[in-house]
Design a protein around this nucleic acid. Structure first.
Length: 541
DNA sequence: TGTTAATTCGG
DNA sequence: CGAATTAAC
């Protein structure tokens, strides 16, 4: 392999006396798994070929998390995953070192120092596509190259990497549907492989030089992670966005709902495809059914491979086709295809981010909307939305669910986002930020894409006049009011014939109304009027 | 992966 | 008052 040749050359340049034993480093970031981890499989293969040692490292970066509004539930999920990853790597004879490096600058310094003191000649990692991450990796590439250390990155986060799906004139698709067609076609004619990491045969398991803020046994990693989560929780409790949140409860809910580890994630995937995907096309829109795969939590931190998701889905599709003989129609299973298209949305928004890095600097994709739209910055209205006190049952139930559990159903993300941006006319960036602060599956590309879709400022976003009415959304997707009444038990006495009607709710909750005794606010905006205002705002000039 | 307004019909 | 239909935002 040509890369090996480079390593030998580089290394012999450095220290001839050590050249009999190379030392390589796998740097884990948002890819906390062993199975089908592109960079890990590659570096294991090369380490075995070169008879090299292989170490692994992960950095805990609290300052970076603060800057990126990482949620407590997601950090806790990462913290629960790391000891499991360490165990998995141990089975491959690889030691994982977890080290605190508050900022990305610290990561660069520490990684360079680690390479130097451990005589590491090659570092591998999987690509990250967000601005700061890209900048960090580019700086590091230069710095390591100065010391003749290789830094090789692999595309791993997407099923098909950014820039690989383009229009005929080689540009990025602006609309999802044609992107999706090309994406499906490309996948059908290409051979997607799962990368298996092989154990390092002759690894001496030399420990990396440790600082006092690092750990490399499962027990020590667990303790370090626990302390890090605790410190982050302390920091967040001083934060305005968390004033209304019981963080202890949120964490324990998230732990119950999302046990950590790649085995758990793979088990969920298999179970979902085998038993739960039937009727997905319809039931995925009903929040009370929990009919979605909920794999986003694992995909975001890389506890499961998106390619594995795609392959298992297409295998199920293939089985259906075979069992069905010559009936072509039912081979086109709507449920499985719909779920695959959700995987494609995930790729799409990552490709969009790679194409427009300015998104990371809070710019609207359609930047004319930044000039034109007079977004509101009404703190009180925003607080009502955040805390689930808008008087709009579906919106409030969804927000209280998010605050309590760190998760919100996808349709409800659209409903609450539309309500914030179209009914309250509040800047979508406020909502985007709050979602990142609370969601266990918070992910910059998907979250930004979703918010700009709702705000009608993004690629292929909802047209400005397509505005959801949260009462009719409740009627069609929470017909019996089950979800609403789960999170707003005070509304249990109200029949759905009133619950799903704004005018009737206003009347029933007002002074002399039928349900005047219920402690629940009257809607803070009148949807019909708000709709007219926001349409006028988009139409102006 | 939308909703409203205008209109008509029926209870 | 609600259901059904359809153009327009």
């Amino acid at each position: 392999m040509s890369k090996t040749a480079v390593a030998i050359k580089n290394n012999s340049h450095n220290k001839v006396e050590d050249s009999h034993q190379f030392h390589y480093l796998m740097w884990f970031r948002r890819d906390l798994r062993v199975h089908d981890n592109t960079a890990l499989a590659a570096i294991c293969e090369r380490a075995n070929e070169d008879n090299a040692q292989l170490s692994a490292v992960f950095f805990l970066t609290p300052e970076q998390w603060q800057a990126h509004d990482m949620s407590l539930t997601q950090l806790d999920h990462i913290a629960r995953t790391l000891p499991i990853l360490a165990e998995k790597l141990h089975q491959l004879n690889i030691i994982l070192t977890v080290q605190v490096c508050p900022s990305f600058t610290d990561c660069i310094v520490t990684l360079s120092a680690l390479c130097e003191s451990n005589n590491i000649s090659c570092v591998m990692a999987n690509h990250e596509y967000e601005g700061n991450e890209v900048a960090r990796d580019e700086l590091l590439t230069k710095q390591l190259a100065n010391n003749e250390i290789e830094f090789i990155r692999w595309h791993d986060q997407c099923i098909l990497p950014p820039k690989s799906i383009t229009t005929n004139d080689d540009s990025m698709y602006q609309v999802f549907t044609p992107f999706y067609k090309k994406w499906r076609h490309t996948l059908e004619v290409s051979d997607i492989q799962i990368h298996t990491a092989l154990a390092i045969i002759d690894n001496k398991q030399v420990n990396l030089t440790l600082s006092e803020h690092s750990a490399n046994t499962t027990q020590d990693i667990e303790a370090l992670c626990k302390k890090t989560v605790h410190d982050y929780q302390e920091y967040l409790q001083t934060h305005e966005s968390y004033q209304n949140i019981d963080t202890d409860k949120q964490i324990s809910q998230a732990r119950l709902a999302y046990p950590a580890g790649e085995a758990e994630a793979c088990h969920r995937l298999e179970h979902f495809i085998a038993d739960d995907i039937d009727n997905y096309d319809v039931s995925r829109d009903v929040p009370s059914l929990q009919a979605t795969s909920q794999l986003s939590t694992y995909l975001t931190i890389g506890a499961i491979s998106p390619r594995l998701c795609y392959l298992q889905a297409t295998q199920a599709l293939g089985k259906l086709r075979r069992n069905d003989g010559d009936n072509f129609d039912s081979g086109d299973n709507n449920d499985i295809n719909r779920w695959i298209s959700e995987l494609a949305w995930r790729d799409f928004y990552r490709h969009v981010l790679d194409y427009k890095p300015e998104l990371i600097r809070h710019q609207a994709y359609k930047y004319e909307t930044d000039k034109k739209i007079n977004w509101s910055y009404d703190e009180d209205a925003f607080a009502a939305w955040r805390e689930g006190k808008t008087g709009v049952p579906l919106v409030d139930a969804a927000m209280r669910c998010l605050n309590a559990t760190g998760f919100m159903h996808n349709r409800l993300r659209m409903v609450t986002a539309m309500f914030l941006t179209k009914d309250l006319l509040i800047d979508w960036r406020w909502g985007e930020r709050y979602f990142m602060q609370q969601l266990i599956d918070g992910d910059f590309a998907s979250n930004n894409g979703g918010w700009q879709w709702s705000a009608s400022t993004g690629t292929d976003s909802a047209p400005y006049f397509r505005i959801m009415n949260p009462f009719s959304q409740a009627k069609s997707h929470d017909t019996e009011g089950i979800f609403i009444k789960t999170w707003l038990p005070e509304l249990k006495p109200i029949p759905t014939s009133i619950l799903h009607r704004e005018d009737k709710m206003r009347k029933a909750l007002s002074k002399n109304g039928t349900f005047a005794d219920i402690d629940y606010p009257v809607p803070i905006v009148e949807h019909k009027l708000a709709r007219q205002l926001v349409i006028a705002e988009f139409k102006k000039e």
